[in-house]
């Protein structure tokens, strides 16, 4: 299992997930301006070369993050965290990934892509299930910068949420390598909203919230962010986002927490599933051989 995950991390540094590639292809077709066209051409050429030459597609291979949905009956539940850490070490050496982990306060690069609290692992425990889903994510530095969470007065309402998102993106999106995937968390406090905004980025591109109003807000925000005109790499264009995903939780009547996480066009998300026999499937990358 360690070996499969390590190989998958390397693979996902070289090849974008199928849904992201499809979305980029669609946006490339729809952009009409000369600058966007040249940029998409360069981006697609790079994707092809990265796959062909087996090299990471972006020089910033990010910080490795995992989100688990793990059944309590999964046979390796006790070993998982250690095994994921081992997989990151292995992928760093074999791919190779750029060493990106700097220890806080001591301010040195560990050189291995592991460190205190890194790779970061979020757990959703599923009682009575024996499978395990692993979402992998390579978090680049440039697209982490727009990230933000705050707590609004409930009176500001959903218009306040959209103001928060649009103001942040107007200033920060051009430099975060758009077209972006935008994750918004709506909850009670800063940390719950922030976490949900990250979880939102792990959904397939173009999926919608099961709540009808949230889904409507996803579409409205997508239209509005596109209408800012930022375009690919911030040079101006009709499409700035691949999508907007909202995840939400109930809140206190007196607070409206909102979080924003953003991923660049090089959205290196992966999704693996292991059953109790450790048979593996990669839902995000049809081309990956487990």
């Amino acid at each position: 299992m360690t070996d499969t995950i390590a190989r998958f991390i390397g693979f996902s540094a070289r090849q974008l997930p199928d849904d992201v590639t499809a979305k980029l292809r669609e946006l490339r077709e729809k952009e009409t301006g000369a600058l966007p066209k040249v940029l998409y051409e360069a981006m697609f050429r790079n994707m092809e070369l990265a796959a062909e030459l087996s090299r990471p597609s972006c020089q910033d291979t990010g910080l490795v993050q995992f989100w688990l949905r793990c059944g309590t009956g999964f046979p390796l539940i006790n070993e998982l965290e250690g095994l994921l850490r081992e997989a990151v070490l292995q992928a760093t050496a074999e791919t190779p990934l750029r060493p990106n982990v700097v220890e806080a306060f001591d301010e040195y690069n560990t050189g291995t892509n592991v460190g205190r609290g890194v790779p970061c692992v979020h757990w959703d425990i599923v009682p009575g299930w024996d499978g395990c889903e692993i979402y992998t994510y390579l978090a680049g530095g440039g697209c982490a910068l727009p990230g933000y969470a705050t707590v609004l007065m409930p009176g500001e309402g959903y218009a306040g949420v959209s103001r928060f998102v649009l103001e942040r993106l107007t200033e920060y999106a051009p430099n975060a390598c758009p077209p972006l995937l935008v994750g918004v968390g709506v909850a009670s406090s800063a940390e719950t909203a922030a976490l949900l905004s990250k979880k939102a980025l792990l959904r397939p591109v173009g999926s919608h919230s099961e709540n009808e109003r949230a889904a409507r807000m996803e579409r409205l925000l997508e239209e509005s962010i596109n209408a800012l005109g930022i375009g690919p790499q911030g040079v101006g264009g009709s499409y700035t986002v691949m999508g907007v995903h909202i995840e939400h939780a109930a809140r206190h009547p007196a607070s409206l927490g909102v979080g924003l996480s953003v991923s660049c066009w090089s959205h290196r998300r992966g999704h693996l599933f292991f059953d109790r026999e450790l048979n593996c499937t990669a839902a995000s990358h049809a081309g990956f051989q487990p």
Binding site: G157, V161, R163, P174, S224, L228, G229
Partner: peptide
């Protein structure tokens, strides 16, 4: 370009405020 993006933002916020009540 940024001046342009900011102008667009104000237009969009006015629209969203109406839609998201």
């Amino acid at each position: 370009k940024k001046a342009e993006y900011r102008r667009h933002k104000d237009e969009q916020l006015a629209r969203l405020a109406k839609e998201l009540a």
